[in-house]
Design a protein around this nucleic acid. Sequence first.
DNA 1: ACAAAAGTGTTACACGTACACCCATGG
DNA 2: CCATGGGTGTACGTGTAACACTTTTGT
Lengths: 241, 241
Amino acid sequence: MLKYSGQTRILVAVDCVIFGFDGENYKLLLIQRGFAPEKKRWSLMGGFLQPEERLEEAANRILKQLTGLENVYMEQLHVFSDPQRDPVERTVAVTYFALIDIQKYEKQLSKEFHAEWFPVKEMPELIFDHEKMVETAKHRLRYKAALHPVLFELLPDKFTLPQLQALYEGLYDTTFDKRNFSRKLLSTGLLVKQTDKDKESSKKGAFYFKVNKQKYEDDFQAILNLIPKPDKLSNSAVILN
Amino acid sequence: MLKYSGQTRILVAVDCVIFGFDGENYKLLLIQRGFAPEKKRWSLMGGFLQPEERLEEAANRILKQLTGLENVYMEQLHVFSDPQRDPVERTVAVTYFALIDIQKYEKQLSKEFHAEWFPVKEMPELIFDHEKMVETAKHRLRYKAALHPVLFELLPDKFTLPQLQALYEGLYDTTFDKRNFSRKLLSTGLLVKQTDKDKESSKKGAFYFKVNKQKYEDDFQAILNLIPKPDKLSNSAVILN
DNA sequence: ACAAAAGTGTTACACGTACACCCATGG
DNA sequence: CCATGGGTGTACGTGTAACACTTTTGT
């Protein structure tokens, strides 16, 4: 099976940056390595690409191992290839980022992999170049979410407008005017108002919405203006950092 | 050096989708393979990732081999990993796309690699999954150029507004109103009007412009509305296909 | 003088932003 | 009855699209 002679074969790893949102904060699912090197240090969930496997399959396999979930929103992010990035052996790492509804997370935390959700803002140090991977993923998510309705992937099937707004505000670390926010989001036609309310977080209760799945799929690639622009300069600033 | 035991090492290829623009049409730089398998068939320029090399270095090395150019705009595109994609041996292919000023292309065509520029619309059949790579690159370029001033990379230092408009029109296969186009592009502050004119393509002559390099670098990541939106639906359509 | 391409200005509309008050409910 | 969070409407300004005529000059 080795037919291109004189070439070096290299390990190909797949690492997953898994985002969740608990209603207040963005979270990352990390695992603590139980073996050397770097034992006890935190890292992204990853694994090696297998001989008969495509990268997406590997990423899904890893995600399922860790979360029990399938059919999750996932996107190829970037390949990290510094020859020294893994001190054990030259490894090229293909990163994926995934958005999951944290409530659907099925496995017992820490059971098989010593996994834990960390607030993105209070992450431990990670091994190798995994922090750079996380930075890249955060950046990509901010970019993507400004233009496409991707953040719904982080919410349960039923959610309220205040929840949705908290989700967007958390990502850009800012606050939006709720009147404009609701008008803009409703005007996309992506939201279907339900008749029942969430009474957990307020006395009055907030109406639930669901995503119009058909329109979500049809419009996903459309460029939507999902975050406000107070003025030109701060707009650029918000999207990019 | 093999320390992760039980894992399969895989060939990592780098393939470059190289775009140029000749004033009328988008072009792709392709090479004709001089050896089996797939001898005489056209393909993207590529090569294997070397042991001590990062992917970007490999991509630049390959680009320099084929074009003689360095410091070219290049972007990691996507990794293709179908186990059957290369019938010779399992190979994971990391694609890059590059934008070059076709006038700066230095090598004699066909000299070393039997290379040729093909209009994007009249490409020959390509080997393996290279046509899929080209499709992905075209899609990404359309997306990117709608939001960021990336197309300047395809033009010489001095260019005219009509040339610039032809560049945008070619990419989206449509026509724009020249009054709105010039107003919009000038309003970005990215263009510096020169005092001399291009007299080649008209009797009256068209003023040359140069890119304001400082502002280009500062604003590159800003989200600019570089292509018109006749209405919501057709906007989405234009950007995405 | 005429053909061919470059260059420019105005108007109408849509969209986005700023902003303040009322509503419903549980305690 | 009051405190808390949910929900809504308007007015203004900005940005974008539609649209037609004049300028320049080579032949």
